[in-house]
Write a protein that binds this DNA or RNA. Structure first.
Lengths: 127, 127
DNA sequence: CAGAATCCGCCCGGATACTG
DNA sequence: CAGTATCCGGGCGGATTCTG
């Protein structure tokens, strides 16, 4: 006996692109982690995130700013731009940490499953 | 005084594409939700996920299977394919639920921030 | 210093049509 | 029934070069 699904549960549903905000962004989690202990300037973010090109980093920052996760404050003399977590961003960062924690705890399981699956399908195409 | 970042924290880091597994997949969360109360056949999944084309649904299912989140069992006479959550998949589903919960609780905040940001930048380009 | 401009390749989501 | 085959458009990540 199968339990029925709510009939209209998925009528106006939010796909993953909407629901887990910023979790589709490749570098957003790392940006949040960089800002966890305090505000950082653009060039300070570029050091730990050296593998991210300026174009990509800027876009991630803008997206996080648009969603109210970080603030961007400009001041001249000296010219500097400072990024800082908002309370909302801090909350997201903590959620993100729980996700990373989950991943770390189940990482081996996942790798094993992936390896088994790939082995299974390699022989299927090899034969 | 800024707290320093761990120097090699991001040397071999995992970007978001790896860490929050399946969270980049647009429909994965809904698939997990559909399988929460028990196993479902392919055609049973297609009903609530009517907006997802077979090609896309199949790919999501394969990806989830590869990562050990669901199992796919085939039996003929009658011809049927059954998808079922693994314990790991169940665990991921619960994590996903907490993410959705967080989103629901902060959704208004996010929309407000987004609206304010867009308004701010609309006048910048209009001028 | 903090990006912007330009260009590119890839993958993903989607639509449509077809099949063992 | 449970997919596969083909094609398409868009967006994202990335590399490189340039600028107020």
């Amino acid at each position: 006996m199968r339990e029925p699904l709510p009939p209209d549960m998925f009528e106006e549903l939010c796909p993953s692109g909407l629901v887990p905000i910023r979790f589709g962004d490749k570098w957003a989690g790392l940006v949040l982690a960089c800002l966890r202990t305090g505000p950082r300037r653009y060039s300070e973010l570029r050091v730990p995130l050296a593998r991210v090109t300026p174009r990509v980093l800027t876009r991630s920052l803008r997206a996080l700013e648009r969603d109210g996760m970080i603030t961007r404050t400009v001041e001249q003399s000296p010219p500097r731009v400072e990024y800082r977590l908002t309370p909302l961003g801090h909350s997201l960062m903590e959620l993100y940490a729980t996700v990373c924690d989950w991943t770390a705890r189940h990482w081996d399981e996942l790798l094993d499953a992936r390896e088994a699956y790939d082995a299974e399908h390699a022989e299927a195409t090899a034969r």
